[in-house]
Computed example of a mutant assay.
Amino acid sequence: MGEIFLEQAIQIEMKKITVAPPIMLEGQMRRAIVKDVSITIHQGEWITLLGRNGSGKSTVAKVAAGYRVAGAAGQVIRNIQTAAKGRPLPIVMQQPEAGMIGATPWEDVVLMLEQNELPGDEIPLKAELALRSVGMGERLHQSIETLSGGQKQLVAIAGCIAMSSPLLVLDEVTAMLDPEASSSVMEQVRGLHKSGVTVIWITQKLEELQEADRIIAMDEGAIVFDGQAETWFARTAPLQKDSICERLCFEAPYAAQVAWELQEQGVQLSPFPFTAELLAKAVKQYGR
C-alpha cells in the first residue's frame, strides 16, 4: 500500500482498502476479511466503529493506525505524527496487561517510550504527566498487579498520550470491565477528546454513544453505515422496526427503546433521544 502525507485537517484517508490474508493451507479459499473500505478521518472527530466479532473493524483500525497487515491492498493517505516518528499509532486493546512490560504504571510508560526511542531526558516527565492526565497520578509507583482492569486501561491510554498521539484507537476497551470501571475509562477518553484528540472507539455497546458521535458500522468486512446517530436509529414509520440499528440486530439503548415506543403511540421526539440525558431533554421540550 502507498502512503502519502498531506497538510490538511484530514488526518487519515483510507481508499478502497481490501484485506485478504494469504492462504495458509492447501485447498483453502482466499477470502477477504475487509472489502473495499474507504474512510476519511478528520482531526477532532469521535468515531464509534461498530461491528460484531469478525466484521473486520479491528483489522480496519490496524490499517488506519499504520500497522502492516498481511494481504492488505489499497491506499492510505496519512497526515499524522507521534513522538515516535514513522511508527504506527499505538492501539489500546481489551486486555492491556498482555502488552505491559513495567512493574508500575510509571515504569511501564517509561519503558514504552524508551522502546520507541524518544529522547531520554524527556521520558520521565512525559510519563508522569501522561499518567496524571488520566487520573493515575496517585498510583505512579503502585504495582501493576494490584491495579483494577479499568486502571490498567488508563495506564495503556497514558502510554498513547505520552507518545504525543493526536489520535487514539481503542479496541473494545470496556468489553471486560464492570460498569463503574467502564464509566471511568469512558470519562477519561471523552475528556481527551474534548481537548482535541481524535478518537476511534471500537465497540459493540450502543449505550456508549453520545450526541455528535460519528458512527461507522461494519458487517462481513464492508461498511454498511457511516453517519450520525439520529440516522442510525431512524425508522421509516413509527410501527416499522426497520432502523439500521435493528436491521443489523444491535440492542438499542434503553432511552432509544423508550423513544420508539413513544413513536408508536404518536409521540414524536426530535432530535431522536438515545441517551437518558437526551430523552429527559426531549420529553421536557415536547409540545412547547
Results as ranks from 00 to 15, higher is better:
V199A: 07
Y254I: 04
K62W: 11
T203P: 14
R190E: 00
V185E: 11
L206R: 09
V134C: 09
R247C: 13
P166G: 02
V76Y: 13
K15H: 11
L248P: 04
I10G: 11
F233G: 00
Q142P: 03
M14F: 06
M24D: 07
G2R: 14
E128F: 05
I47M: 14
G196V: 14
E114H: 02
W46T: 14
Q228V: 10
T203W: 01
Q153I: 01
C249Q: 10
R214S: 04
V92E: 13
I23L: 04
I223E: 06
G221Q: 07
A162Y: 10
D171I: 05
P119T: 05
G54F: 03
G150L: 12
R247E: 13
M1N: 06
K205P: 03
L89W: 06
G149I: 02
E208Y: 06
E251S: 14
D121F: 07
V189E: 14
L154Y: 05
W106T: 07
L50Y: 15
G227N: 00
A32Y: 04
S243C: 08
M163V: 06
A72L: 00
I157H: 06
Q8M: 02
V134E: 07
K205Q: 15
E117D: 04
E26P: 03
A181N: 15
Q81Y: 12
V199Q: 00
E7W: 04
I47G: 03
Y67M: 09
F250M: 00
L177N: 13
Q285G: 00
S133C: 08
L118I: 08
S195G: 06
V76K: 10
E122L: 13
E180M: 11
S133N: 13
A20D: 06
V63N: 09
D226G: 00
I202R: 12
E122F: 02
D121Y: 10
M100P: 09
R132N: 10
T198N: 13
G56A: 07
G51D: 12
L269W: 11
L167P: 03
Q240R: 11
Q265N: 09
A217N: 02
G66K: 06
A127F: 01
M100L: 11
Q257P: 05
A276K: 15
I47T: 08
A9C: 04
R68F: 10
G227S: 12
Q151P: 03
A20N: 07
A20H: 08
K241Q: 07
V258C: 09
F233Y: 14
E230P: 02
H42Y: 01
P124N: 08
Q75C: 04
M163I: 05
F272M: 09
L279H: 13
A259P: 00
K126L: 13
K35V: 10
K35H: 14
L125E: 14
A72Y: 06
P90M: 05
A282T: 01
G159V: 00
T203V: 08
Q142C: 05
T275S: 15
R139H: 11
T104P: 10
G56F: 15
E261Q: 15
L170K: 06
I12Y: 11
R30W: 02
G221D: 05
V267L: 14
V110C: 12
I101F: 03
P253L: 10
L239A: 04
T104M: 11
E26W: 03
S243D: 10
G191K: 14
L129Q: 15
L192Q: 14
N79Y: 05
G149Q: 08
I91P: 04
Q43D: 10
T203Y: 05
L279I: 11
A127T: 01
L131I: 01
V109Q: 08
